[in-house]
């Protein structure tokens, strides 16, 4: 199975299965939402098997709840390991968040206060996951809507500390940086400058929803111009890392996603050219 991840990939969504299998679009790789394949069998796996035969894939999860105080869900983790063994993704990514308490599950990516205690808690659990999967985990920065009074450091310092403690890689979601920077009033450029560049293995791009007094990470629109600008800055800092276009709500036709990927490719090519000339 091919596993070379480079260029601009797309998130695999069930509404595009038929298009992908019948048109075999020239997409360099797909990101698979692992939570959609936690079921034991059936059509989702039949489609994924066929797509995996043709395309490299990465795994992306939303349900590990790395930041929960409740113990890691071993059943979920073991199923993830089974899926990794079956489909052999180039890497597995998850969010620096929590989803569930010992009572309820929110199915939402919830933030933690940026404290050393929380960073250590996350790092310990990332370590457990890495030990189970036998590979480095790639962790993604969140977009967040609440500000914690007890935070002791900036978000990028928090993310950097976790990556260092757990020796894991970073999935830099540029849209999330923009959304959180706007909601919390920090500089997105400072964030990009502050993350550990060598650990950035992948970049995410998506569209947000502007509610006036809050930006929501809705994944329901094209990437905003301000986020494209930030993407350019990120590439200048971290170099030509693989990039993914995410779209999860009001999902458009496949050609719309391909057009967004083309924009990202053009910016990456332009940035690489400029960096090369400058070098």
């Amino acid at each position: 199975m091919q596993n070379r991840i480079e260029g601009v990939g797309l998130g695999l969504r069930s509404c595009h299965y038929q298009h992908i299998l019948s048109h075999k679009p020239r997409v360099p790789w797909f990101e698979v939402m692992t939570d959609n394949y936690m079921g034991a069998g059936g059509q989702p796996h039949q489609y994924l098997e066929q797509i995996r035969q043709r395309y490299p894939v990465t795994f992306h999860g939303v349900g590990l709840s790395l930041g929960s105080a409740a113990p890691l869900n071993k059943e979920y983790l073991h199923r993830l390991k089974e899926l990794v063994d079956i489909y052999q993704p180039a890497w597995v990514s998850e969010h620096l968040c929590w989803c569930a308490s010992d009572e309820y599950n929110s199915h939402e990516l919830l933030p933690l206060p940026y404290t050393e205690l929380c960073a250590r808690h996350l790092a310990e659990r990332i370590d457990q996951v890495q030990n189970c999967l036998g590979q480095r985990l790639v962790v993604e920065n969140l977009s967040s809507y609440v500000t914690f009074a007890e935070s002791e450091m900036s978000e990028w310092e928090f993310v950097s500390l976790i990556c260092q403690l757990a020796d894991c890689d970073l999935l830099l979601d540029v849209n999330n940086v923009y959304v959180s920077a706007t909601n919390h009033g920090f500089s997105a450029a400072d964030y990009i400058s502050g993350v550990p560049a060598k650990r950035v293995r992948e970049i995410h791009l998506a569209g947000f929803e502007d509610q006036g007094d809050l930006l929501l990470d809705s994944h329901s629109r094209p990437v905003y111009d301000a986020v494209w600008d930030l993407y350019r800055q990120a590439l200048e800092r971290v170099g030509p890392v693989p990039t993914l276009i995410e779209w999860d709500n009001d999902i458009p036709g496949f050609e719309v996603l391909e057009a967004e990927a083309e924009k990202a490719r053009a910016i990456a090519a332009q940035t690489a050219g400029e960096v090369s000339c400058a070098g």
């Binding site: 919830l110 206060p113 909601n183 919390h184 809050l214």
Partner: peptide
Amino acid sequence: AAQLQANALGRSAEHCLMAY
């Protein structure tokens, strides 16, 4: 309420929580 603060765009902590 002490745990959460208003956001930079003027939305109260309670309303930020309601987004979730």
